[in-house]
Design a protein around this nucleic acid. Sequence first.
DNA 1: CGCATCAATAGAACGATGTTCAATTGTGAA
DNA 2: TTCACAATTGAACATCGTTCTATTGATGCG
Lengths: 254, 254
Amino acid sequence: MGTTESQRGRTPRGRAASIGLSRAQIVAAAVAQIEAKGLAAFSLRELARSLGVSPAVIYWHVGGAKEDLFAAIAATITGGLAEAQDPSAIWTERLRQVFHAYRASVHCHPKVSPLLGAQMKSNGVASLDWIETVLVALAEGGFEGDALRDAFNALIGGLCGFVTMELAPGPASEDGAWEERVAQRMAEVDPKTHPLTHAALPQLANRIFVLRWQNGAQVSYDDGYAVLLDLLIDGLAARAANFPNTSPAEPKHG
Amino acid sequence: MGTTESQRGRTPRGRAASIGLSRAQIVAAAVAQIEAKGLAAFSLRELARSLGVSPAVIYWHVGGAKEDLFAAIAATITGGLAEAQDPSAIWTERLRQVFHAYRASVHCHPKVSPLLGAQMKSNGVASLDWIETVLVALAEGGFEGDALRDAFNALIGGLCGFVTMELAPGPASEDGAWEERVAQRMAEVDPKTHPLTHAALPQLANRIFVLRWQNGAQVSYDDGYAVLLDLLIDGLAARAANFPNTSPAEPKHG
DNA sequence: CGCATCAATAGAACGATGTTCAATTGTGAA
DNA sequence: TTCACAATTGAACATCGTTCTATTGATGCG
């Protein structure tokens, strides 16, 4: 299951011409390199080069391919995410905590985040604990069956999608030719035909629809995410309040 | 701005050893090829090959690079999206129409959709009309300033993010080794430690968190998207109802 | 103590990719 | 006719992911 039998024995530093390279070290180095130079510029060969190692070593340690390395990275990042909730809080509050934790966790590795979106779809969310957390909270609110499924999909799709999209990488060129094109694009907005877009440009342009980085620092979407979270959870709470026969707490034997 | 001066004259079929290749034809062929073989398997060389042409031709026609071709594709797809609304409808209804139209439009080219997510960030949404439509609707609801900005970000981030995420590609391997890994992953879900996840597996597994394709046909997230849309727009309407001094219709001279 | 095993590495090789560049072609204009 | 130049070609370069066949050297066993 992903461990590829490489470190099944407890031989911490191998037994041969080892440099002592481990799977975890490779994953860590890959994350560092992606975070440094961007996902588009990432290559197995340069990863091997930065580790002072032959490219084949990565295949031996990680498994089959680049894809397995990406899966390992995603699993590393979303691990230990379910602990972010306070079990004594009400379910709506727990949802808030969990999704804020998700965003915070992903924001720790912005350039790696596209991998999360893809890997969440292919391998399932790396941390099942996290999924279970969300489902438990919704169930406590009285959701079940199709309503549970739809609420879950709306939450995961909307909130994880928001994070994925806000961190989506711009063009690969890191040399500022991009900024020029953006400025050009902004200047093209015609106040006559798009008055509100033009008026909101200082408010919006640097936010969601053009720039992501400003002077090298990341632009904040915190408020938009907070509003999205409020709308979703408050709305779900309102729906839950209308469920026919449900006490606010546990529906089963407790 | 993206046209790269290639077809500035009105010489429809060139003037030389032309095959009569145009930028639009290249873009169309690229979309077709991506839709047929997937985005990960797309290459400029094979595009040129399928057009019976040298790879350099694409550079000459499209502009600098692969990235410019992607930008052109994104612009082609999200064009003419603002017409999907009924101008006489109330603003909440118009928002619903516009975002349903967005999803439908993107779903017409599922494999190209990852490009939309990225290009929406870099070049700005291809269709400014569409942005304007959303802003006008929100303004009619009474949103302005920071509230407008946050509502806009929540809507765009959540809804476009949902679509981006639901269409996110799985692993590149199209040969079913993926299905095996997924089945394996599903079998690993322990009813003891993750009871709700396990119980909801038949409802959820084929939905958001594992499979995207089932027997080659696309799985539907329609209900989840509808719930998300309802939660967001109903919530915004509720907020708008609490705005101090706003008549339900136009805030300005009309 | 010696030897065979085998984890762990190196290095070369293959095909494919994105991109660039120096030719070449043929048409429309002078 | 001649010239400029849009349009295309093909070769070339560096890089990439991946696979294959060695080689190395510690380790457990006899």
